[in-house]
């Protein structure tokens, strides 16, 4: 068995990201923070995906994360970024825990459609609440950190640094989880649930845990993106947002906890350039890329890395 290099790799990647957050031009920092937020959501999708479940409704928790930040802003006037990135996943996780009792009973397309339904219910409720600005949404307070306000540019950089650390923490914890017995159960559940039950594990509970985990991660992503953008609206809960996460999940592949972040960065960079240089055709560029990936790299970008490492493994005595 080859040595697991995921954790050191993540640490190095985080250092690089922190460097980008500190020194890169402003637009790159913004691209990075949006990618990291999206990567967090997709990381949660990956956990579910490994068990054969695809949520078309992660936008639900993404929006809950965003609106938690917004409502805490309005109700309590609090804008501390550290507090908000803890509160949002907590609320999202709680909601996922409650909905999980129902959703953990379903598989395949039924699971996907139900998750989608819950996201669209939230969307409908938000659109009807004109006190929250309906589809126009409302502005988020500029996030503050411990100490005096550092100015807009430094705020973005600090937020991006915070997002990178959260991403590291999340990726490391999910990695540990996937290496644990409960994590390894995912593949078994996907292949044969009845056998898993006979082994003495509760499939229901395992899926419930994965669902809550995905909800927490999406909540964190929503909170970060809300603070980075400075505005939230119901579109965060809309199915196209959820579709984007699935897009990135397919682009990234489920091979490693680093894959979602790599996929998200690739996606946002692709979208940025497509929108700038093909303003009339960017949908086609994105769609075409997805098609190419599905046809030629069905296991996502990450499979390129895996393939690059394979010859090394083959040479090593097993």
């Amino acid at each position: 068995m080859s040595r697991d290099r995921t954790l050191p790799g993540l640490a190095v990647a985080t250092l690089v990201l922190l460097g980008v957050a500190a020194a890169a031009p402003g637009w790159m920092v913004f691209t990075l923070v949006v990618s990291l937020a999206q990567g967090l959501v997709v990381l949660g999708l990956m956990v579910l995906w490994r068990a054969g479940l695809m949520s078309f409704g992660q936008s639900l928790y993404y929006a809950v994360g965003g609106y938690t930040v917004g409502l805490i802003n309005i109700q309590f006037g609090l804008s501390n970024a550290l507090l908000l990135v803890l509160a949002a996943p907590a609320v999202a996780g709680l909601l996922a825990f409650l909905l999980g009792f129902l959703l953990a009973r379903y598989r395949d397309i039924f699971f996907s459609m139900l998750t989608l339904a819950f996201a669209m219910i939230l969307y409908g409720v938000l659109v009807k609440s004109s006190t929250l600005g309906s589809t126009d949404g409302f502005s988020i307070l500029t996030p503050s950190f411990l100490g005096p306000h550092p100015g807009p540019d430094a705020t973005q950089r600090l937020l991006t640094g915070l997002a990178a650390l959260i991403a590291l923490l999340a990726a490391a914890l999910v990695h540990r989880y996937l290496k644990s017995t409960a994590g390894h159960l995912a593949t078994a559940i996907r292949d044969n649930e009845i056998r898993v039950e006979y082994l003495g594990y509760s499939v229901h509970r395992a899926i419930h845990v994965k669902y809550v985990l995905a909800g927490i991660l999406a909540g964190a992503g929503g909170a970060i993106v809300a603070m980075a953008i400075g505005h939230i609206d119901p579109e965060m809960a809309y199915w196209t947002t959820a579709g984007e996460f699935v897009f990135v999940a397919i682009l990234a592949g489920a091979g490693s906890v680093a894959a979602p972040f790599l996929g998200a960065i690739l996606f946002v960079v692709l979208r940025t350039y497509a929108a700038q240089y093909t303003p009339h055709l960017w949908h086609m560029v994105l769609g075409g890329t997805l098609l190419l990936f599905i046809v030629f790299l069905p296991d996502g970008v990450w499979s390129l890395f895996e393939r690059a490492c394979r010859p090394l493994k083959r040479r090593a005595p097993s």
């Binding site: 993106v225 400075g230 609206d233 579109e235 929108a275």
Partner: peptide, 22 residues
Amino acid sequence: IIDEAGSTTQVVENFRNLVQQR
């Protein structure tokens, strides 16, 4: 000329790129 379509994230992203990159 750029497109306004897309999520608010995308609209803000495109605006920032217009200013900071172009």
